[in-house]
């Protein structure tokens, strides 16, 4: 069995946009999909709790879960090229989601679809409704995927690398849209990304995942200023910055294979502060004051360089 995500534990506060950060393969997407209980087979839950609004989602029946999907928690997936069904028009796909949330007649549903398309700032929404996904640009498709996630007016929106496959200029537009939507609709955002630049711009709190474990939890400002986990520090060094002349340092080694994860601290094979204890014993996620948590045996002894964001 592959334990993609193991012992991931963090809290999302209402109205505080949260960044879920890590390299690809670190379990970010699985964590998000778990919250919606739509992990593709053969994935399943070995245990754990996902508490949303005081209720454990993992104990819900499938029929109850449907009241959460889209209505309480929205989800925007990674790749705009594949997030929409290629065989149905945009209008059909949006209005069926609208109708899944509220029993409304067809005409009312298409009015609602128009509203949604306007909300995500799509020009000529009537024409776009009749279009098939392949007739639209990547940015446009990602807006439509966002519109679909908004159809049930969720309290929490999980955006899974929403800009990874987009051009840089379109990326900025989509991120702006997400920012505005949070304000307009009072949603809480969980942003999954591997890009620390986006984290700095969009979030107030950061959870850093490494190989299916939480490495560090802190406010965004503290994460950038004084990282406590060597992996976080390494991530910050791998971010290109326009304003500073400093060489980028790639992170050596590879993401460990989750079938046979490294012993002890899963980061030890790539960590320059590695000692015997790191190989022997898995570190606990310690609360270190000020709402911060870190999972490292040596966080007290080492000093890590941050960046002022």
């Amino acid at each position: 069995m592959v334990r993609a995500v193991d012992g991931v534990n963090f809290t999302v506060e209402k109205g505080v946009p949260l960044g879920l950060v890590g390299e690809s393969g670190s379990g970010k997407t699985v964590t998000a999909l778990s919250a919606l209980r739509v992990v593709p087979r053969p994935g399943k839950f070995a245990g754990g709790k996902i508490i949303f609004d005081g209720e454990d989602l993992l104990t819900k029946k499938e029929s109850e879960m449907r009241k959460y999907r889209g209505r309480r928690i929205g989800y925007v997936s990674q790749d705009p090229n594949s997030s929409l069904d290629p065989l149905f028009t945009v209008g059909t796909q949006l209005s069926e989601v609208v109708q899944a949330h509220e029993k409304v007649p067809k005409e009312r549903a298409s009015e609602r679809v128009l509203e949604l398309l306007q909300r995500v700032r799509i020009s000529e929404p009537e024409a776009r409704m009749r279009a098939y996904p392949h007739e639209l640009s990547g940015g446009m498709r990602q807006r439509i995927a966002i519109a679909r996630a908004l159809a049930g007016e969720p309290d929490l929106l999980i955006a899974d690398e929403p800009t990874t496959n987009l051009d840089v200029t379109i990326q900025a537009q989509v991120l702006d849209l997400l920012k505005d939507l949070q304000r307009e609709l009072g949603m809480t955002l969980i942003l999954i990304t591997h890009d620390m630049g986006i984290v700095a711009e969009m979030t107030q709190k950061v959870v850093v995942l490494y190989a299916g474990r939480v490495a560090e939890v802190a406010s965004t400002r503290e994460t950038f200023a004084t990282p406590k986990h060597p992996y976080t520090s390494a991530l910050l060094k791998a971010v290109p910055r326009v304003d500073r002349k400093k060489e980028l340092v790639p992170i050596g080694g590879n993401i460990p294979n989750l079938i046979t994860p490294p012993s002890g601290c899963r980061f030890h094979p790539r960590c320059r502060f590695m000692q015997e204890i790191c190989v022997a014993k898995e570190p606990a996620l310690d609360a270190i004051g000020g709402g911060r948590q870190v999972s490292c045996h040596r966080w007290k002894e080492i000093t890590l360089e941050g960046t002022s964001s």
Partner: peptide, 22 residues
Amino acid sequence: RQDYVLGARASGLSDFNVTYKH
């Protein structure tokens, strides 16, 4: 396994609808 199936389920469509329509 496709993203659009995941997306459709995550946005609240029924399993039946997702399987037999999309």
